[in-house]
Design a protein around this nucleic acid. Structure first.
Length: 585
RNA sequence: GGCGCCGUGGCCAAGUGGCUAAGGCAUCGGAUUGCAAAUCCGACAUCGGCGGUUCGAAUCCGCCCGGCGCCUCCA
């Protein structure tokens, strides 16, 4: 076993094996191999499945930023009893079940901004590796075949239990029919003989399929080697899954499987016991006819949606992947996170402050924050601290941010520092009136550099990569046109000291989720969606009626003409004014 | 029964031996604004309870109370 690299000067990782934080030392200097246990794809993903991917995505981004060449593997278990059952239940093949849920899983990952995964190995694509590993274990007497099954002989491994702090003779083991074929209760299956009509692969022990644990030993070895740097997964996998992985791999290779075991905390449903997607929840869910059904009684504690186990795609549609990502990153990854939708909503409120700043940046510099290309490495990032008071503040914030990340990827602490940096930048805008007059180029440059550091740091967390996705382009355009018209009408009213009309416009917009902000250079708006359009038109029609009643035909005609330009036709009838969309071609 | 985790302001959440306990959300003042919104400034907790170690503890130890996880498929 070759010696590990020199430790990183500041980065520490908590290791489940030693139960303490340790400096990062890698197997190969300058590179990091990460393996994260991915899903068993027998059903749609729930939000609990996203915790690991999101934090490990940040880990890879940070390690890359720190100069490492990182390879990240997330395996997919696509052969398993539950897949077989699901396929039988639905009358489709196991492969079809897997394909469907892999697509769901990956689209969820994409929505949450998880795009750093290098390999998604599938168990069914690694059968040769799995069988080879089992054969080696049998040859060296760590495993034995029994009636078409193969079991790992736990009694042969003196280290068994070192990860989860368990003693072999205290383990309960599985009962049932398999128990008769096992030599020891704690022994676990490496290969399971196929029953009639089950999917099966040929092996020296007869047709069958691999056990769950051996897949990960085989896939991690294949892609990362017999010893690699970081192995991740949920805390619930420590025993038996990871314990068994260690047993298999280390008995086979006679060297450490993994240097750092990193386990993320589990998501817990607020106001109810049990982790999201856990056993108690599934039991409670069983009587329900449709798991994706809208909860009928929030107080019953049996809701699926608010516990997050169902409808991740729907949750993402309601809240956006970025909000969910930000919500997850606010808490340290080893902590239990209490999940509930209002909390995600609240995280989104915090996120809005950043988006308002991005607009401010655009107003001041004329450029999009999202077009800033920040330094992508720790060595080249940051600003000259001595250049100005602002730069010193920025440097302090950046140092604190990096110190938090160095401390076992403390994203919660890092995010706190991000808000500090945001406040400093806003204050700088205020104090130097960057929006009002023609600011000095030097002030502008300092400001730009501060924004660049903000972009540098947020990129590490994988947030604000791109402007938020908007709805349909056509509706967006109409919404923009209607609001510009309303803003113009309001500006005219304000110019005439007609604050009643001006305030009416703003007040009527609020219930539609649209907020107006008056600034030196004009009025900004935010919020609103396709559903706001009808309300806006109703308001415009009323404003036009008021203008007509006051014989202010210039205004009323302006409204009608500009609506026509926007593709809305107004028709005055006896009972009132009706609107319709002009057919588009 | 065995192994383990957690309990910080109204809510969420950093901090795990030493300046006035980050930050977010909410609330209340102030600046700013025609009024708002946004932004900035300020207010708001002695860290579940008790006892101990220490010059010094939210941070270490013990006990108690409360919440949760694993020991079985599970991210």
């Amino acid at each position: 076993m070759p010696a590990l690299s020199e430790p990183h000067p500041s980065l520490q990782i908590f290791n489940t094996l030693s139960k303490r934080k340790e400096p990062l030392r890698t197997v190969v200097p300058g590179t990091v191999g990460i393996y994260l246990c991915g899903p068993t794809v027998y059903d749609k993903a729930h939000i609990g499945h996203m915790v690991g991917p999101v934090i490990f995505d940040c880990m890879k981004r940070y390690l890359t930023y720190c100069g490492y060449d990182v390879t990240w593997v997330v395996n997919i278990t696509d052969v398993d009893d539950k897949l077989i059952n699901k396929a039988a239940e639905r009358g489709i093949s196991m492969l079809e079940v897997a394909e469907e849920n892999i697509a769901d899983y990956q689209s969820n990952l994409t929505a949450l901004g998880v795009d750093q995964v290098d390999h998604f190995p599938r168990a069914t694509e690694c059968m040769d590796d799995i069988i080879a590993l089992i054969r080696e274990l049998i040859d060296s007497d760590y495993a034995y075949a029994a009636e078409g099954d193969v079991y790992f002989d736990v009694s042969q491994d003196p280290d068994y239990g070192k990860l989860s702090n368990r003693k072999v003779d205290e383990l309960q083991g599985e009962g049932g029919s398999m128990g008769e074929r096992k030599r020891g209760l704690a022994d676990f299956a490496l290969w399971k003989a196929a029953k009639p009509n089950e999917p099966a692969w040929d092996s020296p022990w007869g047709p069958g399929r691999p056990g769950w644990h051996i897949e990960c030993s085989a896939m991690s070895k294949k892609l990362l080697g017999p010893t690699f740097d970081i192995h991740g997964g949920g805390l619930d996998l420590v025993f038996p899954h990871h314990e068994n992985e260690i047993a298999q791999s280390e008995c086979c290779h006679h060297q450490p499987m993994v240097t750092y075991w990193a386990h993320n905390g589990l998501l817990r449903a607020a106001a109810a016991a049990g982790k999201v997607g856990g056993r108690s929840e599934r039991a409670a869910e069983a009587p329900a006819t449709a798991r994706a059904a809208v909860p009928t009684d929030e107080a019953s504690g049996k809701m699926s949606r608010s516990k997050g186990a169902g409808g991740l795609a729907e949750l993402i549609a309601r809240q956006s992947g970025e909000r969910i990502r930000f919500f997850l990153l606010r808490t340290h990854y080893r902590s239990t996170v209490l999940f509930n939708e209002p909390a995600i909503q609240e995280a989104g409120t915090g996120l809005e402050s950043f988006y308002r700043f991005f607009k401010r940046y655009q107003r001041i510099t004329g450029n999009s924050f999202f077009d800033i290309c920040p330094p992508t490495s720790r060595a080249t990032g940051g600003v000259e601290a001595s250049a100005s008071a602002l730069h010193q503040e920025i440097t302090t914030s950046r140092d604190k941010f990096l110190a938090a990340m160095d401390d076992d990827f403390n994203t919660g602490g890092a995010i706190g520092e991000l808000f500090e940096l945001l406040r400093k930048l806003n204050k700088y805008c205020d104090e130097n009136s960057l929006e009002d007059s023609q600011p000095q180029p030097a002030l502008l440059e300092s400001f730009h550099q501060g924004a660049t550091v903000l972009r540098e740091l947020t990129s590490i967390l994988g947030i604000f990569g791109q402007p938020p996705a908007t709805g349909g382009a056509a509706d967006d355009q109409l919404l923009g046109q209607l609001l510009q018209l309303l803003i113009d009408l309001r500006a005219a009213a304000r110019a005439n000291q007609d604050f009643a009309t001006a305030d009416t416009i703003r007040d009527r917009l609020a219930p539609l989720g649209i907020v107006l902000e008056d600034r030196a250079g004009g009025t900004d708006w935010s919020g609103g969606d396709a559903e706001s359009v009808e309300g806006l038109l109703q308001l415009l029609i009323e404003l036009r009626q008021t203008a007509r009643a006051a014989k202010d035909f210039a205004t009323s005609d302006t409204i009608r003409d500009r609506l026509a330009t926007a593709g809305i036709l107004l028709e005055d009838r006896a009972g009132g004014t009706e609107w319709s969309r002009t057919p588009t071609s």
